[in-house]
Design a protein around this nucleic acid. Sequence first.
DNA 1: CCTTGACCCTCTAGTGACTAGAGGAATTAT
DNA 2: ATAATTCCTCTAGTCACTAGAGGGTCAAGG
Lengths: 140, 140
Amino acid sequence: MAKEMSIGELSRHVGVKVPTIRYYEDAGLLAAPPRSEGGQRRYDERARHTLAFIAHAREMGFSLEAIRSLIDLADHPEKPCVDADRIAKARLEDVRRRIDKLRKLEGELERMLAGHHSGKAADCRIIEVLSDHGRCADDH
Amino acid sequence: MAKEMSIGELSRHVGVKVPTIRYYEDAGLLAAPPRSEGGQRRYDERARHTLAFIAHAREMGFSLEAIRSLIDLADHPEKPCVDADRIAKARLEDVRRRIDKLRKLEGELERMLAGHHSGKAADCRIIEVLSDHGRCADDH
DNA sequence: CCTTGACCCTCTAGTGACTAGAGGAATTAT
DNA sequence: ATAATTCCTCTAGTCACTAGAGGGTCAAGG
């Protein structure tokens, strides 16, 4: 039942580019698959599943390093998963920090664009705002 | 009045690391400053201001490429600043897209951690969630 | 069976925005 | 005068890919 597929098919199924798949193999995230007579990679369902796992984790912003730990954990179900917990928690904190930062940014950019008249650069609010903040950089 | 400073002083004032300052010079963002007898860089207030501008723009997530355009504009006040407008608007959109994505992520990570018992990896929600999403990757 | 065209292989090098280290010269403080 | 600190250039490394060269393989049609 386990139908084999080429790297291109795998790529289309999972939505990960061909060179990226090979890169993941090099990086030790995806096991080196068996090869055809002529030396081409042949993947099974299990490989597809792992790649999808990687792709999803990447979308969630996990680093390849973190994903390596996660895969290692998934491959050894007897191990305690405190690590997975720690990794996910760190990720959540990071995500929250980034949301905060981006929200401040959003406000700043909005203010920048609000007073902007699309005239000459001389009285351009955008450049002004950036410069003013520049000027205050030595107060702290 | 324009007191000169070494690259280290500039670094401390603006909060940008020394090698990064040199990198910005190489990248054409910061003009090559005059040198001392012995060949060390000597910066003035104007350079400090420009570096602060760059640092602030970087914090706001502008690419070096975008910052190059912004600086070019700031240096030529007679030019129309439609470009600055376009750059800032693109940035705002990007920021908003990222906030959206990160908020979805936040929810997903929260759900992941909610049902998690810190037991064995075998019944670890975190790995499960990541895997399940992996499994559904072929439905679209 | 043979050709065609799409796919696959490895390898090297490039991206952005830095960061790290080697090996040596200049400046500053004592 | 000497010692500590800072500075110089240069190369190479980081992360997560992406692009291209120069070739080999596979499946379908004739």
